[in-house]
Design a protein around this nucleic acid. Sequence first.
DNA 1: CGAAGCTGTCATCAT
DNA 2: AAATGATGACAGCTT
Length: 570
Amino acid sequence: MDLIDILWRQDVDLGAGREVFDLSYRQKEVELRLQREKEEEKRQQRQREQEKELLAQLQLDEETGEFVPRSAPLTQDTATSAQITQNGAFAEQDGDAMAFDECMQLLVQTFPLDEAAESVPPCLDASDPPSTDLMMPPDIPAFIQNPLLPGSLDQAWMELLSLPELQQCLNMQMQESLDMKPSVEAQDPNYSQYLPGIDHLSLVKTEVCPPEYINTYDGSFNTMVSPNLSQMSLNVPEVGAEFRPEEFNELFYPEMEVKVNSGPLVSDGGNMVSQLAEISSDPPVNTVDLHSFSPGSFSSGKPEPMAEFPDSDSGLSLDSSPHMSSPGKSLNGDESFGFSDSDSEEMDNSPGGMESDYTEIFPLVYLNDGAQGSLSEKPPTDQQEMKAKNQKIEPAEASGHSKPPFTKDKQKKRSEARLSRDEQRVKALQIPFTVDKIINLPVDDFNEMMSKHQPNEAQLALVRDIRRRGKNKVAAQNCRKRKLENIVGLEYELDSLKEEKERLMKKKSERSSSLRKMKQQLSTLYQEVFSMLRDEHGKPFSPSEYSLQHTADGTVFLVPRIKKILVKNN
DNA sequence: CGAAGCTGTCATCAT
DNA sequence: AAATGATGACAGCTT
């Protein structure tokens, strides 16, 4: 379940938001893809007529929507051009006529589980016995053809499938599902919750899994899976029959779904617990731990705080996702009292960051809860405890079950965690005020509120701490905002000044050019005027002997240069 | 793996 | 004197 959860988050991190899991969204995608595929099919038919060889080598890549050279699917070594053509033919003739159950029965009959398991390569055998079965007969692949999933999801699920532990789980689940077809049907109800079109399936939902649990963890899986299940028989005729990794994934989603839903619930009889026990180096992974992840268990496990401060969440973790805040709350609420910020920082990271380690962390947390006593001792105690926790957690990570996805999961806004922690502290000290009020209430109201409650020293210190931190946080945000605005303003001013400088330089250049032009014109005019002047003999004046000078009033005189020189000398 | 950026927090001073 | 705002500095975390 942890792995599934991790991978689901990985899907989200990879860009597959909840909208991806939405039926309508996916249906649109399907329509587009189908349209594309029809076009491509037409083109392919033309190509078949022209070149059969090309046909064998070309294949519609559902991820990119392009025809690419056919590469053998992961587990399909037998993929040949002949089979491809067979698949295509089968898709048209048999695909729509054969229901999923019928195909499954046929597969089970044709390929017993033992053979199927043996025939599957190691990397996928665990995860998809059914899919391998489906692949084997050339007529089945039509099922698998479903271009619903985006590439990112496909990748994420491929990663999921590549996990050995999960493959084991999936393998066992798959075998069970093959034996008991109803189990597969039981999964649908969950899917239907997120699929408007599959309402009829929702009848069994409550029997399979608590609604809260489904809401928090199963939603994504459900939406991913359900379209495929519901439309599996419908998709068969329309899409080309080809094997792809993502198709396998789609087939497996139901199984994962089953695990997610039923794992914690049916943990006693199911394989999940045993698998988890094998996976985890820490033996004490039990159903209680698993249940601790579900929202319902959160509320049930910590009834008092939740009941006492029902609106505390809304007060501060406005932008925090419920999924994230919930675990943190249950975690911190139990153990958090009056510890220092640094402690709380550590708290933040471990619970929020390693979600897959919930099973390991939560038990520890519960222990801590019980151990928590007075308020004043908390800071050092918590630090030590956290260190101990981390040490305990590390082995599990070292065992290879904490993976890169965890680091992605760690990407949470500290604000969310901080608020959540403060809330938990408030709850822990049984302070009947929301953190929001503690921080944002005016001084008078705040003091009045506090006086009414008559808080003890620890409560008062915590409340004032929270208020100070909260206000300072806002102040820091504003300060940084101002700083950025100042930077932006200065940059803008700098740009303006540069533009101004540019403009002035350009103006200067223009003026200089204009001045040169005017000098040129003046010179021309001077020569023109001078050349028109004549002495008493009708001869022009020599420019070397005479020059023209003008006074301020515009009067022009012809001045002999010698005289002028004499005047200058004088 | 290191640099850069973001955010919360603390210390300090100013209001 | 207390509360609050502003801001530099620091640490932890993410990108």
